[in-house]
């Protein structure tokens, strides 16, 4: 699993596609949808959590997603505290307590059936 990027820290400044600046903790589902709508390259996909298993290292988890209309199966291995953005809910991780502790980012528990925001390239299907 990759080390955790700095932009999940509470207070990080995020630039939306229209140039607007928001703090990471203030992002809403619509911000991602609207940003993708004006992006020429990126498209939002809905990725449903199908399985969550433990990974190779103690804090790692393997999350299996069903991605997009084609329901492509994609597995990612991340640290348990890595947050995903769930549609209509916001930031969620497998270890929300650790996410909150490390990033001060308030976080729900990521569960099987949650639908996460993910990206694909436009023109790819």
């Amino acid at each position: 699993p990759v080390s955790l990027p700095p932009f999940f820290m509470r207070g990080s400044i995020i630039q939306l596609a229209d140039g607007e600046l928001k703090r990471v903790e203030d992002l809403k589902t619509e911000d991602f949808i609207q940003s993708a709508e004006i992006s020429s390259e990126l498209k939002i996909d809905s990725s449903t959590v199908e399985r969550i298993d433990s990974g190779q290292t103690p804090n790692a988890v393997v999350i299996q997603f069903s991605v997009g209309e084609l329901k492509a199966q994609v597995c990612v291995e991340v640290l348990g505290e890595y947050p995903f953005f769930v549609f209509g809910q916001g930031w969620s991780s497998c270890c929300p307590d650790r996410t909150t502790q490390l990033f001060e980012l308030s976080c729900a528990k990521l569960c099987v059936g949650d639908v996460c925001v993910s990206l694909t390239l436009r023109g790819m299907r």
Partner: peptide, 19 residues
């Protein structure tokens, strides 16, 4: 203060290319 692009925050999950 660093500014991060919105698309860094969500994973790029590419489905296997079909047709």
């Amino acid at each position: 203060v660093p500014v991060f692009p919105w698309h860094s925050l969500v994973p790029f999950l590419a489905p296997t290319q079909s047709d």
